[in-house]
Nucleic acid binder design. Sequence first.
DNA 1: TAAATAATGAACGCAGTGTTGTTTATTTAT
DNA 2: ATAAATAAACAACACTGCGTTCATTATTTA
Lengths: 201, 201
Amino acid sequence: MSRKTDLRILRTKQSIRTAFYELIQEKGYEAITIQDIADRAIINRNTFYLHYQNKPDLLNTCMDELLSELKNAVILCPIHMNPFSISILEIVMQAILEHISSNITFYYAMLIEENRIYQFRTKVESIIKDKLNEGWNPVQGNSPLAISKELLLEFLVSSFMGIVIWWIKNDRPLPAGEVSFQFSRIVAYGHFKAAGIAVEE
Amino acid sequence: MSRKTDLRILRTKQSIRTAFYELIQEKGYEAITIQDIADRAIINRNTFYLHYQNKPDLLNTCMDELLSELKNAVILCPIHMNPFSISILEIVMQAILEHISSNITFYYAMLIEENRIYQFRTKVESIIKDKLNEGWNPVQGNSPLAISKELLLEFLVSSFMGIVIWWIKNDRPLPAGEVSFQFSRIVAYGHFKAAGIAVEE
DNA sequence: TAAATAATGAACGCAGTGTTGTTTATTTAT
DNA sequence: ATAAATAAACAACACTGCGTTCATTATTTA
């Protein structure tokens, strides 16, 4: 029986990935050169081109890999009839935060400070959006304020992602469950009620 | 009386700016070369370096210019005692959306699709954050849910910015006043109530 | 109209990219 | 254990873009 891939290939690819993540954190994606990666991975610059076409190709490969894991984590979340129930927001966020915790180095490099890659944020937002949209119930007839569906969905996704990034950036100041709980309450009941301010009806 | 600046300088700088904005929209910031800008502005490449140090310098100059206008637009908004009143959110958002409308080409280039510059988004978020934080009332003692102040502020800023970007990206599908109104209601009362769903207490 | 200065044009070294060969080392299969 | 296969190393290449220099030309201001 033949081995799937040459051990040298696995080793080299692993070195490149590790070097890449480190460098993103150190100097940001744009500033990295192929030579930087080669030096850090202790390989010849040519060897890089044996495995990846160029820098964006490496980035995309890395992103796709982890994002498919993220998708799997989200897909397992049960959705009830109403995707805007408190529970779905809370459950999905908790699942995402826990997945991020397991891969914190990567997510920090991709999303925080100078290192951030806009493309990655957008892709994560897509995953969240798809999940929230999954079981959208179009029969919400009697909305007193005639809220635009698109606007509401955008509202949910961007605040969701904002909290996620805030949480990573601040070194996870609260447990995943606590953040998810608070977020879902604010969204559901409004910030007046959540913050304990009398609601002006 | 001597003229402030040579007419040639004004003309050249103007050409560079225009070319720069066009190119950001066409191929995105990163892909632009100085030669691209020179060609489009119909100037010698050297002339560019007579006015700007490099590409980031040009970008920063452009950003600072418009962001100071944005700040002025926001600073005029009256804030009441409670910065989380419905009105402050609505008024600030409307002011921002109207300012953006007057400079839509620039904002589109900076925030939308492939052209987006993360740095710019962050700077706009800072302006919003500062405004919301301006008159924060620390005495909101009896919050039933003990919501983190930082989390709540982040929630407001990211959803605010998310709606703004959504609005630009979709070619301003609703009037500025309408978007601001809907946003402030969702935030204040929660998405259940805003969307007309019975609240599960 | 003269002096000042902005803009041009050509050239330079530098850094980084992506490619092409050839050679060396390691791994897999016989 | 050894031969065939192939990954990795090494060297060199043309190419693009950057940022700078210097002399020359054109425009503007005084």
